[in-house]
């Protein structure tokens, strides 16, 4: 369609309740098929950035007050969420938020409800998700509220994938999970971007793992884009190492 990035946030500003300024100049570009990490300290504005892109701020009485959000080159700042999802932009929210009383498989199906897909298409989507996260096959009939944290994160990602997105916005998949599980999830995500051309924008406290798997990265500080560039190059920088990859216990020991 256009040669520019698939999803682009340009100098976006956001405030909550008309008063609290949460973002004051965030720019992020996500080209098709890219794996982009969004890193920053607590309260830097990662979640707000993702919610702005998915047009989910109104739920928190937040609003984009300046800047532009475009998808496929078109301004989508005020597009209804269901339309964004249908076009291929979906958020897997912070804290996973699975539908607790629905089974794992039903959770996955909810992601496909927005498209009027046939049963066969639905089956195909489910098979792909189970192939990506084989562990879900065993718990497909369990209520999502009762499966492990790692499995819930896989459900949340799978549910988003069931809408057949072109850009997946993913908020803190590592939250509260064991390092091995996090590694497994990031590998699966990486494979998705290389094999199926999905673009991912992942917000992470855990900068180390995010920078290790991502192609590009954006560093947020106090609601602004502070740094932007190749993930490996950023990870090699002294200041990034000190602030985000250093042995700072506040980052390493963070628990959800």
């Amino acid at each position: 369609m256009t040669s520019g990035p698939l999803l682009e946030l340009d100098a976006v500003e956001v405030s909550y309740g008309g008063a609290i300024r949460a973002l004051s100049g965030v720019s992020v570009a996500v080209p098709a098929g890219a794996f982009v990490a969004l890193i920053g300290a607590n309260g830097a504005g990662k979640t707000t950035t993702l919610k702005a892109a998915a047009n989910l701020l109104p739920v928190d009485r937040g609003a984009v007050t300046a800047g532009r959000i475009s998808f496929e080159g078109e301004d989508v700042t005020h597009q209804p969420v269901h339309r964004l999802v249908r076009r291929g932009l979906v958020l897997a929210p912070e804290g996973r938020r699975c539908f607790r009383s629905l089974t794992v498989e039903e959770n996955l199906i909810t992601g496909a409800l927005g498209r009027s897909s046939t049963r066969a298409e639905q089956r195909e989507d489910l098979d792909k998700i189970y192939a990506l996260f084989p562990r879900l096959t065993e718990v497909r009939r369990s209520p999502a509220g009762l499966v492990s944290g790692g499995e819930q994160q896989m459900v949340a990602i799978g549910r988003a994938l069931a809408s057949r997105p072109r850009v997946l916005l993913l908020d803190e998949p590592s939250m509260g999970l064991a390092p091995l599980v996090v590694e497994h999830i990031f590998r699966a995500l990486k494979r998705l971007t290389t094999e199926s051309g999905l673009a991912i924008l992942v917000a992470e406290q855990n900068a180390a793992i995010a920078l290790r798997h991502a192609d590009r990265a954006v560093v947020l500080e106090n609601g602004r884009t502070a740094l932007e560039g190749d993930a490996k190059a950023l990870a090699a920088r002294g200041d990034v190492k000190a602030f985000y990859l250093g042995r700072a216990p506040s980052i390493e020991t963070r628990v959800a």
Binding site: A54, L56, V59, V81, H82, L84, V85, R86, V90, L91, A92, P93, R97, C98, F99, R100, S101, L102, E106, I109, T110, G111, L113, G114, R159, A160, S163
Partner: peptide, 18 residues
């Protein structure tokens, strides 16, 4: 199914396109 999803978590239901 959409009903149950909304009942469980309204925000997540909206986020997933319902």
């Amino acid at each position: 199914l959409a009903f149950q999803a909304v009942a469980d978590d309204q925000f997540a239901a909206v986020a997933v396109g319902l």
